[in-house]
Design a binder for these strands. Structure first.
Length: 644
DNA sequence: TTAGGGTTAG
């Protein structure tokens, strides 16, 4: 199928047949004159978008030029007309251009634009002289239509028959390694990485940036960082790719550090809207409000506030930093809004436990004629779930199809969460058994989470049986089941799960809190010995816990995974990172300032109760974002109304 | 002739 052809010495295409009757000199010049005129007319018709007329003319044109066909092909792609595309393609073949590799690349692009990979493939297969442009054009078409596997197959073929790749081929091939979600092509990516180095492209900024991104998409942060650090030339895109890599892979702190480094080292190079989106994501993940505000200022100064992705990320940053009013302000000021902007606002209200507001925004969205997306329903169902709006959530779930959306596993997981949280576990289990698709880990995970809240051992065992199979390395699931056994005082079960964890070499993710004080982020863990104030912090926690006992605080120790004396259990929960963070905040925040804490796991019941009492006792507002939502503690109450 | 980084959820 693939033949290697020596390229023609004469760059003039030899495959342009000149009809015999044009061979005589005077006929040739005459023919050239008419040709020029007709070609020019066709070309100008194409430019004016009058494709039909152009096609009429080309059928009578005896000497069409390559450029004329190029414009015709582009015109077909622009006008999205496959029928015209076929006419032009046939006419071009009839006039002997079927072996023109330049036009073949244009045809491949055109068929891709028109959504017909099959015709693009046909052009690719039929052209004998496959220049690197032809290969690259087909790779591009395949990559962009999600057919990474075929790119990789052809790339291998190309290597076997000895056609050298160029810088474009490498970028397409690397991108092909991440387009298919079904299977991992990381190993192929690594192989191409080796080819890139072997052929001396280690200094090529496009190729290397694509490599950074390829590793980023697989979560191979160290590899991405290694490639990035080894780049002799970096530009704003490479910096942004690496910042995005950190932000997307749970390393927001490093993302911000790298951004600061970029601002210091990059000289004239300015961050773009793309850079700012990743930086905002990092601020949101860290709940770094002050940093985020600085970024907001920069966005306004640089006039990036009309770019939709920037504004959605900004809105989300405020919402995830606990400032839902500022998020709403951003939304109000937006000149244009798309589905994502609305989704961002809905989920913002959702994580603040403001379910009715989220529902209202959803209604507004629909009445404004904005189409909801699958994510809209995940957000609005999530909002119902956090607020206990079970009936509203059920109605919404049943309406999904009306919006032309097929309910996905994510939507079912939301429903299970909604019902399960509300202690309607049987209904939640029924939702699962009624599912046509395989429930998958998200659905079972939701059920297990609800079993944890309501301590339902039997259902938890059923859910974890599936979960342990589907996610054998997710330690969180094992810990949830152990928690449930512990609460039910089934110490044999706790032991068994711990052994399972050990046998699989898994470790419980330890609790960690962080807090921003004067634009600096401080993290606290229960085993923290490095914090210079740690003794003061512990002392304050002990004192406070004694004081608040007088106003009704009773330690809740059921989360402790050990069968110990009650005093020992109380000592353990007193060391939870969230309590340390509260004390750290009380020591270091200015008087009257809200203490803002972020936690990597779900807030435990004792810490929740402790913080409520502390907010009353110290007359402080304390805001805690846990893995799922916000808790605003004020005057002894929490905004979640103990429903979380 | 062709190319690299980004928005919302979980």
């Amino acid at each position: 199928m693939f033949q290697i052809q020596t390229p023609p010495r004469n760059p003039q295409p030899t495959y342009l047949p000149i009809p015999l009757h044009h061979r005589r000199r005077h006929r040739i010049s005459a023919a050239l004159t008419t040709t020029t005129n007709n070609n020019q007319t066709i070309q100008s018709l194409c430019k004016k978008g009058q494709l039909k007329q152009a096609i009429q003319l080309i059928t009578h044109e005896q000497n069409p030029t390559q450029h004329t066909y190029e414009l015709l092909i582009q015109s077909c792609a622009r006008q999205k007309s496959l029928i015209d595309a076929f006419k032009v393609h046939k006419n071009l073949n009839d006039n002997g251009f079927d072996e023109d590799p330049f036009l073949a690349t244009k045809l491949i692009d055109m068929y891709f634009e028109l959504g017909s990979i099959e015709h693009a493939r046909q052009v690719f297969e039929e052209i004998t002289q496959k220049t690197i442009y032809v290969w690259n054009a087909f790779f591009r078409a395949l990559s962009l239509s999600g057919n990474g596997e075929e790119v990789l197959r052809l790339y291998r073929k190309m290597n076997e028959i000895g056609i050298p790749s160029d810088r474009f081929t490498y970028t397409y091939a690397l991108k092909a390694c991440v387009v298919s979600e079904a299977s991992s092509f990381l190993w192929r990516g690594k192989e191409i990485h080796a080819h890139v180095l072997r052929h001396g492209y280690e200094g090529h900024v496009h190729v290397m940036t694509t490599l950074v991104d390829m590793y980023a998409k697989y979560g191979y942060v160290e590899n991405a960082d290694f490639v990035f650090s080894s780049m002799p030339v970096k530009n704003v895109v490479s910096w942004s790719a690496m910042i995005a890599c950190f932000a997307k892979n749970g390393r927001p702190f490093q993302a911000l550090q790298l951004f600061q480094k970029m601002m210091l080292e990059s000289g004239e190079m300015l961050p773009t809207s793309v850079t700012m989106v990743s930086v905002l994501q990092a601020c949101a993940a860290l709940a770094a409000l002050e940093q985020g505000k600085l970024i907001h200022g920069y966005i306004l100064r640089k006039g990036l506030d009309s770019i939709l992705p920037v504004m959605s990320a900004l809105l989300t940053m405020y919402a995830r930093c606990g400032e839902i009013d500022l998020a709403q302000n951003v939304f109000n000021k937006m000149e244009k809004r798309d589905t994502v902007s609305w989704n961002s606002l809905i989920s913002g209200y959702g994580i603040h436990g403001l379910g009715s507001e989220a529902l209202q925004i959803f209604q507004e969205m629909v009445s404004n004629g904005v189409s909801p997306s699958p994510i809209t329903f995940v957000s609005v169902l999530g909002a119902c779930s956090h607020s206990g709006l079970v009936d509203e959530g059920k109605l919404l779930f049943n309406s999904i199809k009306q919006y032309g959306i097929h309910p996905s596993v994510e939507h079912y997981a939301c429903m299970v969460d909604l019902l399960g949280r509300a202690n309607r576990l049987d209904e939640a289990a029924k939702v699962i058994s009624d599912m046509r698709d395989e429930p998958g880990p998200k659905v079972w995970g939701s059920l297990l989470g609800s079993c944890r809240i309501h301590c339902n051992v039997e259902l938890a065992e059923r859910a974890s049986k599936w979960l342990f199979e589907l996610e054998p390395t997710n330690a969180g699931n094992f810990v949830l089941l152990a928690d449930i056994y512990a609460e039910a005082k089934m110490w044999g079960g706790v032991k068994r799960v711990k052994k399972l964890l050990e046998a699989r070499g898994l470790q419980k993710v330890s609790g960690c809190c962080w807090i921003e004080i004067k634009r600096k982020i401080y993290s606290l863990t229960s085993v923290d010995e490095l914090n210079p104030q740690i003794e003061q912090i512990h002392a304050l926690v002990v004192t406070l816990s004694k004081e608040i006992r007088d106003i009704g605080y009773v330690p809740e120790t059921k989360a402790v995974l050990y069968d110990l004396e009650i005093e020992e259990k109380e000592r353990i929960v007193l060391g939870h990172s969230e309590k340390l963070a509260v004390a750290f905040g009380l020591i270091n925040c200015s008087k009257g300032e809200t203490i803002r804490i972020t936690k990597n796991l779900r807030l435990c019941e004792d810490c929740h109760s402790f913080t409520k009492f502390i907010s009353k006792f110290t007359n402080r507002e304390i805001m805690v974002r846990d893995i799922n939502r916000f808790h605003h503690f004020r005057d002894g109450e929490c905004s979640c109304r103990d429903y979380w």
